[in-house]
């Protein structure tokens, strides 16, 4: 069953002079319930735009977005967006606990939100860091806070916009392992936007490759590597290398074109 459906989604942005600029042209994509899908594309192709429309944060110009069968026009309760820039999405005037609690305190009240936050912080390995402020933590820890906050809302789906692009390579492997673990344990549906081919192969069930602007889906690949996957050993598998070769060629060719 498809949990997220993008049906012929088109997006135009108004331009100062002349006709509106089309950044996305008839993209159709379906993410199955419990599936981990990655979206790859050259930078500036509109990957984030796609994700924001899927999250109901940005209206579509034509076509439709459905989540759990419902057509959406505003952020749905089932899906939570995880931002690339944790420094912008975390609130520096709140400590870590209240940042995580922020996701639910408008529904549960501040006290219960704090309890929820403590539990979620434990889930991402940040137990005991509740009293710290975000700017006192490393980049990787801050992104863990952002993930804990997303999980606090108990979503069925995570929409992740290059969530590991701002941290160093080792931390990235760490966070990839964390997100795989969470995805498995919570049986989440994930749509992950990334420009990192290896990350997409390591994490996803299927990979959608977008074209240059105006973006459309160029390729849809089945990864076909058995789970559970280890971020280190998975990268040594022949299937991994073959997929990497194929995807990089596609992206580079499109890049040069």
């Amino acid at each position: 069953m498809d949990f997220l459906e993008l049906n012929a989604v088109t997006k135009d942005f108004p331009s100062r002079s002349g006709p509106p600029a089309r950044v996305m042209d008839g993209v159709s994509l379906a993410v199955r319930q419990g599936e981990f899908m990655a979206v790859l594309g050259p930078s500036g192709c509109g990957k984030s735009t796609l994700l924001q429309m899927a999250a109901g944060l940005l209206p579509v110009s034509a076509g439709e977005v459905r989540i759990a069968g419902r057509r959406i026009s505003a952020p749905p309760p089932e899906a939570v967006y995880v931002f690339q820039q944790y420094t912008r999405s975390l609130l520096p005037w709140r400590n870590v606990r209240d940042n995580v609690g922020f996701a639910v305190e408008h529904r549960l009240g501040r006290r219960r939100a704090r309890d929820v936050a403590e539990v979620q912080l434990g889930q991402v390995g940040l137990a005991g860091f509740g009293d710290h402020f975000p700017w006192q933590l490393s980049g990787g820890m801050q992104q863990r806070v952002a993930i804990a906050r997303a999980l606090a809302a108990e979503p069925a789906m995570l929409l992740m916009d290059e969530p590991f692009s701002a941290v160093d390579a080792l931390t990235r492997l760490d966070l990839q392992a964390l997100i795989l673990d969470i995805w498995t344990r919570r049986q989440l549906t994930v749509l992950l936007v990334t420009h990192d081919v290896e990350e997409a192969i390591t994490l996803a069930d299927r990979i959608a490759v977008l074209t240059q602007r105006p973006a459309s889906v160029a390729q849809l690949l089945e990864v076909g590597i058995a789970r559970p996957r280890d971020p280190v050993t998975t990268r040594e598998l022949p299937r991994f290398l073959q997929l990497r070769h194929q995807l990089l060629n596609t992206l580079l060719a499109r890049h040069e074109a």
Partner: peptide, 25 residues
């Protein structure tokens, strides 16, 4: 930051609460 306000929206926080709890601080 636009991201900060979008964060509020993704958690289903209404405009007034966003103004008071995100924009104002």
């Amino acid at each position: 930051e636009a991201d900060t306000l979008a964060m509020g929206r993704t958690f289903g926080i209404g405009p007034l609460r966003r103004a008071l709890r995100i924009t104002l601080p």
